[in-house]
Amino acid sequence: MRPDFNIVVIGGSAGSLSRVLRLLPHLTKKLNISVILIFHRREDEDSVLHDVLAYKSEFIVKEVEDKDSIMRHHIYIAPADYHLLLEKNLTFSLDISEKVNFSRPSIDVTFESAADAFGESVTGLLLSGANADGVVGLEAIRKHGGKIAVQDPRSAEVSYMPQQAVDRLAIDLLLTEFNIEDFLNLVNRK
């Protein structure tokens, strides 16, 4: 099932929350997208995270439960301690298997799964972080016809993760503080 909206998957680790908070006010219902957030974090931060995001956004924010539907104008947060997978029938599946890149949720796992399920409809955005999670997943998105964007490592609080992506992959967009419109056009492409 090809969704009639685009899927934006955003992965971040240390220092990425502030970038997401600056992005959220730009995500309006004019955009034909659904957003999925993968943050490396501790479990006890979950409810705070939900509230902070909901306050900043027009979209409905939801921490994913198993088999939830993937819908337009929602922001889905991967729950702590589970990998988050996307099913072709537009639902989520959770998975508690081994950590990947020392992380669960792993950004790679969700990027790869989004790529496999929804190909060209997917945009991956990799943000600030301290490990290499996400790079392999971005590559998969690209291979399946999606687009990939990376936070400019110079503006990232922790540059390692986005720098890895920039060094190893051909990026469609380097997200700075000044080209947010370009990013919105990218995610909203037909």
Binding site: H83, L85, L86, E87, K88, S93, D95, S97, V109, E112, S113, D116, A117
Partner: peptide, 9 residues
Amino acid sequence: YSAASLKRR
């Protein structure tokens, strides 16, 4: 089984 995780495994 959930197709996505089965495939991954």
